[in-house]
């Protein structure tokens, strides 16, 4: 019984630890998504401004390729944020028309379509930002959350062990009580006394007083 209870407690502790660890990991993933969302919304401003300028010019009939003021705007927008690695305007076939940096700038790429007055995409603004910003955020989140996650996992597993051990002790005590009629609950003791009395009487009836010794 003790071995069964102990192995069950260990399994439960493992289950609790694994589920808390799993919950912590998912929370970390959720935090990374929130961090990425806030970080990227910074770059929406620049992309929006470039796209709006291009769309306004397009609505006056100036083709995207002919919008020669765009490079200056791209350079200005790129200067505004040190994380921006490159910003470019591409046509609908993906050919780069204007760019403030090498078009193959490495990092995380964001896109915002440029549409004409009919809502049809005529090109896109592409912005590449430094992936290190995301990685740094992820590292900070990891550092910030790992302490709490480890504490929670350990706490969960330990509490399960303690609660399980207490329950096992109580069960063991109850088992000992069940083995000794003197410690049985009152209804059980009454039932036992009743049974022994009836057995003694029946034994006496069947075979005489010698057979009812157990009573």
């Amino acid at each position: 019984m003790t071995r069964t209870a102990l192995s069950l407690i260990l399994v439960f502790a493992l289950v609790v630890g694994a589920c808390v660890a799993c919950g912590s990991y998912f929370a970390y993933v959720g935090l990374i998504a929130a961090h990425r969302q806030v970080l990227q919304s910074r770059f929406d401003i620049s992309m929006e401004r470039v796209a709006t300028a291009a769309e306004r010019a397009a609505s006056f009939g100036i083709a995207l390729r002919a919008q020669t003021t765009l490079p200056t705007l791209l350079a200005d927008e790129a200067r505004l944020d040190p994380l921006v690695r490159g910003i470019a305007v591409r046509d609908e076939r993906g050919e780069t028309l204007f760019a403030n940096a090498a078009t193959e700038a490495t990092g995380v790429a964001l896109r915002r379509p440029i549409r004409n007055d009919l809502g049809k995409a005529i090109g896109e603004v592409s912005l590449v930002y430094d992936a290190a910003a995301l990685e740094q955020g992820a590292a900070e989140l990891r550092a910030s959350l790992s302490g709490a996650a480890m504490a929670a996992t350990g706490f969960g597993a330990l509490c399960t062990l303690i609660v399980g051990a207490v329950m096992a002790l109580l069960l063991r005590r109850a088992l000992h009580r069940a083995a000794d009629p003197a410690t049985w609950p009152e209804p059980a003791r009454r039932a036992l006394a009743d049974a022994e009395a009836v057995h003694a009487k029946v034994a006496h009836t069947l075979e005489g007083p010698a057979a009812g010794g157990a009573a």
């Binding site: 919950g23 929370a27 709490a148 996650a149």
Partner: peptide, 10 residues
């Protein structure tokens, strides 16, 4: 309780 600790960490 353990998840509340994780929530605090978040």
């Amino acid at each position: 309780l353990a998840l509340a600790v994780v929530g605090w960490g978040v």
